[in-house]
Design a protein around this nucleic acid. Structure first.
Lengths: 348, 348
DNA sequence: GCCTAGCACTCGAGCGCCTAGAGTGCTAAC
DNA sequence: GTTAGCACTCTAGGCGCTCGAGTGCTAGGC
């Protein structure tokens, strides 16, 4: 099957230009394609094809006497083609068994969800050589357990266990509470709230629970207030980032004026949010101008959701130049999301 | 009082060159000093002084017909001068009341130690415009509380409360345990271990405790094993980093080949460890070649310890070019470490 | 004896010019 | 429809030049 609009030769040429440009980061000449790819025709013929592809918006020329560079549109066509399951013109998009094994080994036996996320972004960054990002588990998680641990007379620690995540908050006590009292409240709250999506907890709920234990009204209210802050879908999500400086290895970012906006954007949480979320069902690729954030228009983002026991809770992905070996990057991100899902589902 | 070796005039000139170079990032000419600083002598005289300072190793020249640039040695002299409590040649090193107030407000009411650290590095990065780093609380903390929370039949969550830090680990259960059993073990362990420095916990301790509750030997052993992993002084410390891309705003890092090693180093935990730790008693300044890590030799690090209830547990600081307004940076880092100490001592 | 004005000297930044080479687009022939 | 040939275009980079900044030195002044 052919990509829409393109005849077999044009597609061959376009895929070849993409491969060559991804490999060398320099405008691709007709002669070079002729030599290195067995297209069976002369450079002149390839030139004709490249000319047509330029008119169609798939290629562009930095200047008259330069070779061709693929446009965002070309990458989009290519990625759609890959995602539709087509073999990728000689590029192996599956990972080797050895690679899978290595990834799996790195990811397993992380007892702490945050360790697992840290390991995931480290692995991804080292395998792709791109900045890698993961969001902490978020979304409508169901609460499993609450625990209050005494810290001092004025403070207790609230441990929240929800699907795929554990977190803690300090709760201020209006008056000293014994360990027994804390346990009592913990049990009451756990019984009342377990199974509820964290985001569903409202002040009304607090009232109802407090009614069952009027003595501890303030404490219950304080705990629920903390839960609401914690559960607010947005506020809870943080990001693990690794290998930001990798972007400076890319030839397109040798100029600081190009690199700086991207690096600055990667420093900002709200940018990561906009670029990565919402979690896509499968691997998601955003190419150049498709990105919602201006500073990222010179980059591509490849991201995949990870799951805890089947429920999508976060995203992991990479940010690289639009000139990117998409087949391999997609395969890596997809596999890493799987491995991470497995580790997290096991672990907590 | 004068800095050793330098007469009054030379010192005046050197301080002026430093101020001027810090402000403009370009080699400083004798004429410029003459115009902008009331030194009361002509450019020719200043040239004589600059010549001498060059011979003494405090200034250098990019080339014959250029102005002078301060060396690391000059900054060291200047910083020692500042740290000895001398007024800093017209530069205000104290923070204004308004600034103090703003910082204090940003830092207060962070219920979660990690939130406080995150806020600290964000504040520091935005005030200095340099990459900012903080280590998580570490060192010989005394254990305060242990708590086991049930997760599933095969797993329990171990919540560790120690001075200035709370953390959690998953413990695998050999056989299902009831909530009561977990509580019993928690209490036993807390009673046995509270007050002990986390790093002092050994397998021998586990044996002794387990003897008191033979039924739960495996669980006790598993918990202690996790504590040892956690308590290993080195492994526990992580770093919060913010504003890494700020380094690209500096003129000395406009060349990617200069900027990349620094950014890559800031991505690596062991580098941060070497550069920031051990925590200094007061503010500590490492200038250029004084840094233990090669990639950081073009940078200066200003760092200060923060404390939890009087005990030094971590470091917070910035990384910038050697050309840095030291008086202000030192004041900011010092104040931020104080504010952070206060927040953490209050909070947990 | 220290300071200063004057001046010759050095060096880099920036500009214009030039050439070599890469790669195209077109045309005419197969 | 394909190809060889060729004229055309545009960039990268080397060279030489000038300009200006800033110094170091020296001779004269307070």
């Amino acid at each position: 099957m052919l990509a829409r609009e393109l005849d077999a030769r044009k597609q061959q040429i376009l895929w070849a230009v993409i491969r060559e440009y991804v490999a060398r980061a320099e405008p691709v000449a007709s002669e070079a394609l002729c030599q290195r790819y067995g297209l069976g025709v002369s450079a002149a013929t390839i030139r004709n094809g490249m000319h047509a592809l330029t008119e169609m918006g798939y290629l562009c020329q930095p200047h008259t006497s330069a070779g061709r560079v693929p446009t965002d549109r070309a990458y989009r066509l290519y990625v759609d083609w890959l995602m539709a399951g087509h073999p990728s013109a000689g590029v192996e998009q599956r990972l080797s068994a050895a690679e899978r094994e290595r990834i799996r080994r790195r990811m397993q036996s992380k007892d702490h969800p945050e360790d697992a996320l840290a390991e995931a972004v480290q692995t991804l960054a080292s395998l792709t050589d791109y900045p890698s990002v993961a969001s902490t588990p978020g979304g409508p998680r169901r609460l499993q357990h609450l625990h209050l641990v005494p810290l001092s007379d004025q403070r207790a620690l609230l441990v929240v266990v929800a699907e795929g995540a554990v977190d803690q908050r300090v709760v201020r006590l209006q008056r000293p509470a014994t360990e027994d009292e804390l346990r009592q409240v913990s049990q009451l709250l756990t019984r009342a709230l377990a199974g509820l999506p964290v985001s569903d907890i409202t002040d009304g709920v607090a009232e109802r629970i407090a009614a069952a234990l009027p003595d501890q009204r303030e404490l219950v209210t304080a705990v629920v207030a903390q839960l609401r802050r914690y559960g607010g879908l947005r506020t809870g999500v943080r990001f693990f980032v690794e290998g930001v400086s990798n972007i400076l290895k890319q030839p397109e970012f040798q100029d600081v004026r190009r690199a700086h906006p991207v690096l600055a954007a990667l420093d900002r949480e709200e940018v990561l949010r906009d670029v990565l979320l919402p979690a896509p069902p499968d691997v998601h690729v955003r190419i150049g101008r498709e990105n919602p954030v201006d500073e990222m228009r010179s980059c591509s983002v490849v991201a995949a959701a990870y799951r805890v026991r089947g429920r999508t809770v976060g995203v992991v992905g990479v940010v690289g130049p639009t000139r990117m070996p998409y087949a391999r990057t997609i395969a890596l991100v997809r596999y890493l999301a799987q491995a991470l899902s497995q580790t997290l589902s096991y672990g907590v």
